[in-house]
Design a protein around this nucleic acid. Structure first.
Lengths: 191, 191
DNA sequence: TGACCTTGGTTCGGTGTCGAACCATACTGT
DNA sequence: ACAGTATGGTTCGACACCGAACCAAGGTCA
């Protein structure tokens, strides 16, 4: 009873023409070839996809955040995990780029992590504008604990979702992310 | 040069085991049945998927928000669009559920929309605890304008992405959203 | 009828994020 | 050498969102 969630949810769609069913919405003859399931209006498609993505992200995020130990936030956990998995050290800017967030956002996240002693930040030797961030032992442990806290939740999901379906989604999502990222180039150099 | 974005990005994953590559996850010693691409560690899969989804959502949202007319926010636009597409009237709670946001969040969004005269809110006749929200003419026009503002952006994307790929993603995302939503039942009655 | 629970909305405090403005330290070219 | 520009970080003001506390009006049931 919790999800009325009408089928034709929220996001855009073409101005007026209530989609009859799907028949080539009168509107100008299908622009491209009848690619089998080629949706009449690409606009609508784009919005539908991003709409679903937005909701999924929200549901999943709050879900995971809720079970994270302490007040550990997803953003913090993500950074810890990055270090634990890939090792080494990074500058704040590198991290910001890796997670696709603004410099300001990363500054904030790092400040919180440092305040908790989960990462160490020291000045960069050669370039004095920069800094170097590294994982502390406490950070490593916290990350370990977080993983364990997350595991049951993730397992509950895989029990409901069918891993194969997720696996099938992954490549497409990755390409989408890459495209979106690439499309962002050329305009905002800093970020 | 804007996206180092290491392949094995951010999100969890099992404690140590550096993922070899990924593809259909060669790792055959799958714990369960060899479901073809059954990923060794479901944990990792889950996180990888949600990680991608999170980034895509973020990139797409800021992208769309940036071109929205006035200071119209995605959250507001989404509500306007919902009304324009489906017609009728709704109570705040119905809207909150349709968009999967908390009651408080919807209250906030509606207050902003009302302040701009884009929706009208009147008391519900029979149930005096409730209210009824409807789209105003100004709201309809604003939504129309927003769609036009969004169109070029969306078209730029469909030029880069291949609509078919998006279309292929949609069903899976929908199911994921539905599952996540359903999984949320039983616990938090209000939201 | 009256106590108790449920349900629709609002308010409040805390978090993440963005974008723009701002510093300080590199780097470049003339 | 020195202005001019680029680059790494921080700060600030807006938003959206969540979750918990709170209110008011609706039900329930004995």
């Amino acid at each position: 009873m919790t999800a009325p969630q009408d089928p034709e949810t929220s996001f855009p769609g073409p101005p007026r023409p209530e989609t009859p069913a799907d028949g080539p919405t009168g509107s100008s003859a299908a622009p491209a070839e009848a690619t089998g399931g080629a949706p009449e209006d690409p606009l609508r498609l784009v919005f539908a996809v991003f709409n679903e993505i937005g909701i999924v992200d929200q549901l999943a995020s709050t879900r995971f955040t809720r079970v994270l130990p302490d007040g550990l936030q997803l953003s913090m956990f993500t950074v810890l995990n990055h270090f634990a998995r890939l090792g080494g050290e990074r500058t704040p800017l590198e991290l910001a780029r890796a997670f696709q967030v603004s410099k300001g956002t990363m500054t904030h996240t790092l400040q919180r992590l440092e305040a908790r002693g989960l990462v160490a930040i020291r000045p960069h030797g050669s370039d004095r504008r920069s800094k170097i961030v590294s994982l502390t032992e406490a950070g490593r442990q916290t990350r370990e604990a977080a993983i364990e806290a997350l595991r049951p939740e993730a397992e509950r999901l895989t029990a409901l979702i069918d891993p194969q379906a997720l696996a099938d989604l992954l490549p497409g999502l990755r390409r989408l992310r890459e495209t979106l990222d690439r499309a962002r180039e050329g305009e905002p150099p800093p970020r």
